[in-house]
Lab assay of single mutants.
Amino acid sequence: MFYPNSPQTSPQLTQIPYGQQYAMMQRQIQQPYHPFATTEPQARLYPYHYQGPIQQEQGGFITQQSTAASPQYVQMRVTPVDQSIMSGYPNQTANGSSSSSFNYNIHPQQQQQQQQQQQQLRHHAMPVGSVPLQDDRYRKQLIVNYLAPDVTSTDLHELFSRFGELDGARIIYDKQTNMSKGYGFVYFCHAEDAKEAVERMSGYEFHGKWLKVGYSTNPLNIVPSNSSPYVHAGSRGAAG
Rank of each mutant, 00 (worst) to 15 (best):
L166W: 03
S153N: 07
D167T: 01
Y187K: 01
Q75R: 05
Q110K: 06
Q42E: 15
S130M: 13
Q8I: 13
S227I: 08
F160R: 02
T38D: 07
Q110F: 10
E158R: 12
A233N: 04
T154D: 05
P90H: 12
Q72C: 13
A43H: 09
A68F: 14
R122Q: 10
Q111V: 12
A238P: 13
H123W: 14
N91Q: 08
E57S: 10
N91W: 15
Q117P: 09
T63S: 08
Q120P: 11
Q75G: 06
V151A: 05
S225N: 12
Q8P: 09
P80E: 06
I62P: 05
N95S: 11
A125Q: 04
P229E: 04
F61Y: 13
G60L: 13
S99H: 15
Q116V: 11
A169K: 01
G88N: 03
V186R: 00
G168I: 09
G96S: 04
R137M: 02
L121F: 13
S87K: 10
N105Q: 10
S84I: 15
Q119E: 02
S10E: 05
G129Q: 07
S98V: 14
Q111I: 13
P90V: 11
H107Q: 04
E57A: 12
L142C: 08
G88S: 08
P47S: 08
D193K: 02
Q58R: 11
Y18R: 07
Q109S: 10
Y204R: 05
Q56L: 13
Q92D: 06
S180Q: 04
P32V: 12
F36M: 15
R236H: 03
M201V: 04
S84T: 12
N226Y: 04
N221G: 02
T39I: 12
S84V: 14
S66D: 08
T9G: 13
A94V: 13
Q113A: 12
F2K: 02
K181V: 00
Q58C: 15
N178C: 04
E205K: 05
S97K: 08
I172E: 00
V131H: 10
M201I: 12
P35W: 15
F206N: 01
Q30S: 14
T67C: 08
Q109F: 12
A23P: 10
G182Y: 01
N103A: 05
D174V: 01
T154Q: 13
T9V: 09
Q21A: 11
I85A: 10
D155E: 14
N221Q: 13
S99F: 14
A194Q: 02
S6K: 11
G208C: 10
M25Q: 04
Q116R: 08
P32N: 04
P17R: 05
R200M: 07
H207A: 07
T217S: 04
M76T: 05
Q12D: 07
M179W: 10
Q110W: 14
P47L: 15
K181S: 01
T63Y: 14
T93C: 10
L121Y: 13
L45S: 06
Q176S: 11
L45N: 03
A191I: 02
I222F: 08
M126I: 09
Y173W: 10
L166P: 08
T79G: 07
G19C: 07
I222C: 06
S161P: 12
H157D: 06
Q55R: 09
T79M: 09
G60V: 14
D193R: 05
G164H: 03
A191G: 05
N145V: 00
H107L: 12
Y183F: 09
S225F: 05
S153Q: 07
H107Y: 12
F160I: 01
P41Y: 07
E40Y: 09
Q31I: 09
K195Y: 11
Q30V: 14
S225R: 15
S6P: 10
W210I: 03
D155H: 13
A23M: 04
Y230W: 07
Q72L: 14
P108D: 05
R77H: 11
